[in-house]
Design a protein around this nucleic acid. Structure first.
Length: 319
DNA sequence: ATACACGCCTGCTGGC
DNA sequence: TGCCAGCAGGCGTGTA
């Protein structure tokens, strides 16, 4: 269930460990985790070993580590001609159950669901291992070519936006909209598209090509906050209410981020394996049969888009 | 273009 | 006790 706050917690934890680090080894334990790796980008392992990582960047639920061009590769493998000209990144998506864990190189394996291991060397800290663990394999890692962003702004969130990689976005992320916490998020464009959609408002919130980073949990929380029924057609929501909804989305995401994300079990954890606390702050998601924190009415769970929606039948009515 | 159903995956839970 | 359907659900693909 990693959504924007959970992925951001992972990004922030990863950044100091990977920025400037040299990849010294890669182990692919399960090829299925490379399903989004385009073989045309070259072999996954060979594309990483010997490469230096520049940063940890996030847009919505996508995470990527730009690869610095290897000028004088220490390895005997000369870079392919295209590899020197096209900026690339290691792209990760956590899917439903993905985790990125930082460990010491001698950490006993053990996890049944470890799929990829990346060994790092760094001038400023000891050697590290990045373990990609993913029970359900909805997530993936890939090396991807990057292209300049159409607006020239930084492609996603990271601490440093001065690197030459900042204005480049991985191909598989290019169609994903900026997220609502991104300073370059185009609010007017989103609200205009929102007003034209006849789909259910919750479906629009979950459409990553319009606004990214929102999943089932934060969609339900945001809709509860502004008393909207998820089945309400977006086009029937007034522009004022739409702006309130967007503000609620931002508020919910920021609060969850401040609390380290939402953890139900050991499924979502940060890079050190620790859980977040936002599950205690949920007002709607997973609260069927419990009292609405606002009016006391018993919350309901309803099927929606092959998943579940949680709402208060009194506060959130279809109009 | 928008809209939406479906498949991918594994592990846990509840009903019979 | 054992088996199987149902559920968790983000995203790419395919169809209308």
């Amino acid at each position: 269930m990693p959504e924007l706050p959970e992925v951001e917690v992972v990004r922030a934890g990863l950044a100091p460990a990977v920025t400037g680090a040299l990849v010294t080894g890669v182990e692919v334990l399960d090829q299925r985790s490379l399903k989004r790796h385009d073989p045309a980008s070259g072999d996954f392992e060979r594309g990483l070993v010997g490469a230096r990582l520049a940063a940890a960047v996030r847009r919505g639920k996508f995470l990527w580590l730009p690869i610095l061009p290897a000028k004088s590769a220490q390895s005997a493998q000369p870079a392919a001609p295209s590899a020197t000209s096209t900026p690339r990144a290691l792209v990760a998506h956590l899917g439903m159950s993905g985790q990125v864990l930082l460990r010491t190189p001698d950490h006993p394996g053990g996890d049944a669901h470890a799929r990829i291991r990346i060994h790092l060397e760094h001038e400023a800290h000891d050697e590290l291992r990045v373990d990609f663990v993913d029970q359900r394999i909805f997530g993936s890692m890939a090396i991807d070519r990057m292209t300049p962003t159409p607006d020239g702004r930084p492609a996603g969130f990271s601490a440093d936006v001065t690197g030459e990689w900042a204005g480049f976005v991985p191909g598989q992320v290019a169609h994903i909209a900026r997220d609502p916490l991104d300073p370059a998020f185009d609010e007017r464009a989103f609200l205009a598209a929102f007003a034209k959609r006849h789909s259910a408002v919750k479906r629009v919130l979950l459409d990553q090509t319009l606004v990214s980073g929102i999943g089932n949990i934060y969609a339900d929380e945001s809709l509860w906050a502004v008393r909207l029924h998820g089945e309400q057609p977006a086009s029937s929501v007034s522009s004022r209410r739409a702006r309130e909804l967007l503000a609620a989305v931002r508020g919910v995401l920021q609060k969850a981020l401040a609390e380290g994300g939402t953890s139900f079990d050991a499924q979502y954890v940060n890079v050190n394996g620790a859980s977040g606390y936002f599950a205690h702050s949920l007002n709607a998601y997973g609260r069927e049969g419990k009292a609405c924190p606002r009016c006391g009415t018993l919350m309901v769970r309803e099927p929606f888009m092959n998943r579940s929606s949680h709402r208060c039948p009194r506060c959130q009515r279809l109009r």
